[in-house]
Design a protein around this nucleic acid. Structure first.
Lengths: 157, 157
DNA sequence: TTGAATTCGTGCGTATACACACGACTTCCT
DNA sequence: AGGAAGTCGTGTGTATACGCACGAATTCAA
């Protein structure tokens, strides 16, 4: 196994571990790791459309909708018709949602700290940089090298 | 946003991007990214029990079972009763499964190469090391630091 | 040996994750 | 203005992902 082959597995293992830990940590609050990401995204940019929310997470619009239906039922978010675009709906945190998010942020500190220390703090910026490069590279241009796929929707940044 | 807070998001974004890309790349083969991981794990240690397979992926035994039911229906894996333990079942790749995996490995090279180059090859070993440290730290001892949650099932290693 | 604790796989319930098709609305182009 | 193209959210289908409870088999202990 060379480094090139190991990298995908290492990335998967690290993410899965984090995701499981986070789910476990938030279980007593009745919130999943992914719902936490959604709430965090909302708290950093309120009144987003569902589309924009999905883009920032990042996640699939279809997935986000399902999550919003749940969270709305639990009273953590509210969806209103967009003032300028009657197709869209704006999503905002309710008061309950904001309070819940603050609790979760505190509860999550344990995991963030653990991760931060596991890599020696000096490496944090470097690791974030490498992960960001990975994401950008994989999200960017469609690969396919040669002309395998004729439907190359290059939706540039 | 300090580095400690950004790290979880960066890890998530990178993994999601990889997972999506891989799914898209393998779609024409009728195989998902996760099924590929399962096949790869099997190809590196045949005749594993379902439990051991799940441990190595890593994934949940319950999830692995569902995947195996599918893959068995597609004729890629075979499940037999364990010779020494009638509770367990051993999982092996069929001939078709082996051939399919070789095809997928080749098809996946594009993504591995893209990831490898995105981080400058020199950083590969370093990145793998950091990700491994993260996974080990998160999988290891249960955290819970102070007594935040009264329901601390400390199921030690 | 017999009974308790563990471990294996199964099955169910819930929550992502995403593709795809659909209807409704906006925008853009002529 | 009017129609084509694009965009937004919805709804469905499939595939993870995991917790939990269950029955069956194995292991451990007295």
């Amino acid at each position: 196994m060379d480094a090139k082959s190991e990298l995908p597995l290492a990335l998967r293992a690290a993410y899965m571990a984090m995701h499981r830990r986070t789910d476990a940590q938030f279980a007593s609050y009745g919130i999943t790791a992914d719902q936490f990401v959604l709430l965090a995204t909302l708290s950093r940019g309120n009144a987003l459309t569902q589309r924009e929310l999905a883009r920032r997470m990042p996640s699939d619009p279809s997935t986000v909708r399902a999550m919003l239906v749940l969270l709305e039922k639990h009273g953590l978010v509210k969806r209103d018709v967009h003032p300028n675009d009657s197709r869209a709906r704006t999503v905002t945190l309710t008061t309950t949602g904001k309070r819940k998010f603050r609790q979760l942020w505190t509860a999550g500190e344990t995991i963030r700290k653990k991760m931060f220390e596991a890599i020696q703090p000096d490496n944090a910026a470097l690791l974030i940089g490498l992960l960001t490069q990975l994401a950008e590279s994989l999200n960017g241009e469609s690969l396919s090298g040669s002309s395998l796929s004729p439907t190359n929707k290059v939706q540039s940044a």
